[in-house]
């Protein structure tokens, strides 16, 4: 990574005892001081560890029906209780978390990748600006849900045959959500790039004869990272929620396949009877989204050298 601080002005003996400071080192130092961000990361890591290794420890099958034990309260046998068919809520929440988080992260990566690329190109190259931004407008004006329905209808069967029902729908869902969620990122990035490319250091780099690719990579991209990271956090949240909506409309995963959104929708009918069915998946969705937002907040502060406390 590029070093931005020259340390030659410091006293010689000081320099010998201190490691050179880097952009990322500084960022990490600032990030650690951000209390909420650290709390968020800790909680998210715990959730991630839980859903990754939890099912190995809590080995109940999330789809196993034990009708005799329906609506069980929080017992040692079922710490989170059971649903109307006697399926264990803890196992379902753990298993559902894998799917929901995987969808959130992968869809976010796809969206961010496309969004950043479009934003950089539109902001940096004037001749691409207008066509790319009109494309973005066009995507923004597309009604998301009907489009999702049509795409799922068209490609569901062929993907199901190729990859099986679960993986097929996973691929379809993340691609569709990712490809329809890049527009806000693209707009943000373009705006930042537009202001950035008039800055002195970019003008300096250009006057030194640096090629466009290097200017974008070394000077502009690191400086537009903070809005990208913030919108990435929002993308994860909205991807989890969009997947829930799809499942509810019957175009997502099979109805017995647990995801957090599906558990929430299934549980809402029993809100007065056994609130735990809604409480746990709801809590997990909120907690995850909150954590990711705190982390985004912390990262933004940490990565922006202009914000100093």
């Amino acid at each position: 990574m590029a070093t931005t601080t020259k340390v030659s002005a410091l006293p010689l003996d000081y320099k010998a005892t201190q490691k050179p400071r880097t952009l990322w080192g500084d960022a990490w130092r600032r990030f650690r001081k951000h209390l909420l961000a650290m709390l968020g990361s800790t909680a998210l890591i715990i959730i991630m560890l839980g859903i990754t290794f939890g099912p190995l420890i809590w080995t109940l099958d999330p789809t196993y029906i034990d009708i005799v034990d329906s609506f069980s309260g929080m017992t040692a046998e079922h710490p989170f209780g059971t649903d109307n068919l006697g399926r264990d809520t803890l196992a379902r929440v753990l298993y559902g978390g894998r799917v929901s988080l995987a969808i959130g992260v992968v869809a976010m990566l796809i969206g961010i990748l496309i969004g950043t690329l479009v934003g950089l190109l539109a902001g940096y190259f004037k001749f691409l600006d207008s066509p790319l931004m009109r494309l973005t407008d066009m995507f923004l004006s597309l009604p998301l849900l009907p489009l999702l329905l049509v795409i799922t209808l068209l490609f569901r069967d062929s993907l199901r045959v190729t990859f099986g029902p679960e993986l097929g729908i996973f691929i379809l869902t993340v691609i569709v959500i990712g490809c329809l969620g890049w527009m806000p990122t693209a707009r943000l990035v373009r705006g930042e790039v537009l202001s950035m490319k008039e800055r002195e250091f970019v003008v300096a780099a250009r006057s030194l004869g640096a090629p466009d690719f290097r200017i974008v990579r070394n000077h502009i991209l690191p400086n537009v990272l903070s809005p990208v990271i913030v919108s990435a956090t929002f993308s994860i949240a909205s991807a989890i929620i969009t997947e829930s909506a799809l499942s509810f409309l019957g175009l997502g995963f099979p109805p017995d396949f647990p995801t957090w959104g599906r558990l929430l929708f299934d549980g809402k009918d029993f809100l007065t009877l056994t609130p735990a069915l809604v409480l746990w998946p709801g809590l997990m969705i909120s907690l995850t989204v909150l954590c990711v937002n705190f982390i985004g907040d912390g990262l933004r502060d940490a990565l922006d050298p202009r914000i100093t406390k």
Partner: peptide, 22 residues
């Protein structure tokens, strides 16, 4: 959906793999 889930469990036990769709 509750009905489907129950039937799926029995058919899976029978050796008939069942995929649900709503």
């Amino acid at each position: 959906q509750a009905n489907q889930a129950l039937v799926k469990q029995w058919w899976d036990e029978l050796g008939v793999e069942t995929e649900l769709r709503n």
